[in-house]
Amino acid sequence: MAHKHHKLTKKQLLIILGVIGLIVVAFGAGVLVWWLQHKNTASTPANGKVVGSQSDHALLKPAADAQQQALKGDTQGAVTTIQNALKQPNVSNDDKYTLLVQEGVTYSNNHQYQQALDVLKQAEAVSSTFTTSHLIAEQAEALGDKATALTYYKKALTQLDPNAISYRSDKTFYENKVRSLGGTP
């Protein structure tokens, strides 16, 4: 059977182009919505040196390497990895903060609380966050310095993001910490 060939009218052509345009806009809107939902939760390292199968939201590679080394029991190797990374030129403040926190955690996990405290203070100098505060508090507590621990646990409570999902549980957890040290949240 022979097919009839209809030539598109200008109006039909405009309708088709319009529909295609709407689909493209919808697709872009999907991407935009995803981005708006995640822009404040992302923590992509500034230098893009990442591990993990996806390049977004993965830990800075030297920090990840150091964490892996430490988990294998090579604390000194982990510290060396971090310190070598810190010696690199043009290390951003974000990266410096991440590396110092990881160095502090490495010492802490190896029960070297004083070294951990010292390094975490350096991290705090770069950027004072909920993480630096609760980690400093934990080192101070381990060293028996309750006053410092209380100060930093309280400070950590003030640095909690009330919009974060973990806000309620973290708030409860650290308020209990304050109370356990004899303080008042």
Binding site: F27, G30, V31, W35
Partner: peptide, 12 residues
């Protein structure tokens, strides 16, 4: 359009 939105969202 809804499918396109979800596709765009899901792609990223």
């Amino acid at each position: 359009m809804a499918a396109a939105f979800l596709l765009g969202y899901g792609t990223i």
